[in-house]
Design a binder for these strands. Structure first.
Lengths: 218, 218, 218, 218
DNA sequence: TATGAATGAGAGTTCATTCAT
DNA sequence: TATGAATGAACTCTCATTCAT
């Protein structure tokens, strides 16, 4: 089945990245819960018992993927504030970078966002904190821009943050590497629409009839 | 194997809705995979084996929730086209209604969108088809509006559809009934931002502005 | 599904034969263990709980089928000894009658022979005793015939009994009502071969001994 | 799902034969359906979950036993045609060999013949095909012998095949290792009686022809 | 390091049986 | 009589994890 020995020489030792890569693939494809360590072991080409030389537990494997993700996210936040003095520019930079990061590391990042909930205890706490930091950062950018009058008045920064990050976070459910859209196209559209949604006037309805109070759904 | 229960009428009286409700709760809280029928049975107050008087399988329980959801979604699509002749108005109606539906039935609907993937066979196919119908409808609305020049020129309908529905679909990950925002607020913000993102010019960056020219990269 | 009420008038009351018939069908088709009372109830058109107004247990249902079978078998034994004074004639009569009985009641009788083992306690004992009586009777016939020199010398009566009854008992595994052979054909072949196997010389090996010319009857 | 075990070599070392042996014992004693993997595990001395290191499913266990059986059966057919040119001799060889094989592997072989029906899908198909091959072979032998005038004229080969194999197949219901008869005795009696039933004249009734009162059973 | 066997807990599912209505 | 809900025990199967070799 899977190759046991690569043709090269220095094969012993660092199997760990290999294992994490395999886990990324399988956690992303099947979801953390549905994925079994057997699946991971099959890809790496070892028995599942052998994985425990490299990991402490299945959750440990998940945590490594998540932990790694956050490092990069921090850099992106730093870079955004350094890119410009204009909040709107910072916003654009941040959205573009975070989008590019997401799209180019879609497996790992979507695990971070979507499967991180299966962590427990401190680790769960930590990942949650990081995500809050994330959101807080974007919200801060929006608020700054709003103070400078660059954001449409009706926009609520925290809510907007959720909606914008949500649309990015959901990309993993429909994106296919061999699909219609290239990552850069998606990133561009995402950035553009996010900015427009923050700055643009929503067209007022033709008739008065305020768009509210409809849809007593179910 | 096949259902033994007589279908159609209001047979299967007492406990069935109770069971489905319990399933909704537990599927939403823990996710379909992590939820056990034991959890459901505990809520209802019966032995897990007793659930099988009402269901054929765990998947059956999931399917019922999903199937129910789609009915309502169809009505909303119908209502949108009947609401107005103006595509933009239809769009607004649709987004508002679908948002309200989502928010007011957030447990069931997010199960439909996020846990439906665990269905198998024909049922999976059916749910997938329905979701495609969903997306196709919104895309159609956007395209119609675009033909009338009501949509910003750089917006790609299919991509926009994904991003907009994604932001809605993700609400379940952060919405809390006892949280800061009332469902209607969220719906309003969602609709407003979605429309703005479709119609609004994204502010051009101070520097160059290579934002267009969608190149087929990668 | 199944009819609840026959068009006739006197439908209440004796559902018991109906239930036994249904059990015969399903026990024969699927085997006692694989058959469920639900299957029986479905055929009869009642809920499985309702069966317990007519039976004490699943095993009880099995027992009734078996008990009924033995009565007829006893008659056949009696009839055989009364049919003639010649042991070989008795043998022929018995084999023919028992074969006809088997073939014409193949479902019930094969349950008796093949599923009776699932009975427990006294009932199992009883059915076993009956079967031993059966075998003993045939063996007795063969022994009597042997004493009169009508049986090939190398034939061991008890062993022959097993082999002959076994070939009959196995008919249920291959017989199909719509198959190639009519019950009477099968009975005739069975009787003929059984008798030949008891009386006939098996051709000795090596020596050529060409088979003598015989007329085509049938 | 699919087998994870490397096939072919003598991997899967220690316990596998033990497990199959235990399964043979318990499937034979209780029947496949009534036997539980718990029973098998108890004999082997492991937890029932541990069995799944060696098997894919309970049905897999059954299939292995059946598959193994067929190999040997094929050899026996081959050997029979090579043993002689005389069809009757081939017949004698075949019956003796198949009888010996049955008796000396009675547990496995009777599982093959009697419990194989519980297989499903392709495996069921395969076992059925094999059994048909079996029967076809014996029938072929009988037909060849008949063409050379070595079989009694009234014998219908296909029917005779069923009856002969049935009597063998049924041995497992009455044979006891510690019983009255040694396997070789049984094989000899079986062969002898089978041949006699094929070649011998059934003695004509003393009285006129019609086997009177032919059992209008029930 | 890696193996492969074993564990143990828990999952979904089936079913004969009971019983209040 | 019949219903339909509920029981409780057993079953097949899965999987993260451990450990002697």
């Amino acid at each position: 089945m899977a190759t046991r020995r690569k043709s090269g020489t220095t094969d012993r030792r660092n199997r760990e990245p290999e294992i994490v890569d395999a886990a990324v693939r399988v956690f992303h494809d099947k979801g953390y819960l549905a994925a079994s360590l057997q699946d991971v072991a099959d890809i790496v080409g070892v028995l599942k018992g052998s994985l425990y030389h490299y990991i402490d537990s299945k959750e440990d494997l998940l945590y490594r993927i998540c932990a790694h993700s956050h490092e990069r996210a921090s850099e992106i936040m730093r870079a955004a504030v350094e890119a410009s003095d204009d909040p709107l520019e910072q916003l654009r930079t941040y959205l573009t970078d975070i989008g590019a990061w997401y799209l180019h590391n879609i497996e790992r990042v979507s695990i971070y966002f979507n499967e991180g909930r299966w962590l427990t205890g401190e680790r769960l706490e930590k990942v949650r904190d990081e995500r809050r930091e994330f959101q807080g950062f974007l919200r801060g950018l929006i608020e700054k821009a709003a103070q400078q009058g660059e954001i449409a008045p009706h926009v609520e920064p925290r809510l907007a943050t959720h909606l914008i990050l949500g649309s990015l976070n959901n990309v993993s459910t429909w994106y296919r590497p061999d699909g219609l859209y290239a990552p850069t196209e998606i990133v561009e559209a995402f950035t553009q629409m996010a900015l427009a949604s923050l700055t643009g006037e929503s067209p007022s309805p033709r008739t008065k009839q305020p768009a509210r109070g409809r849809a007593r759904a179910k």
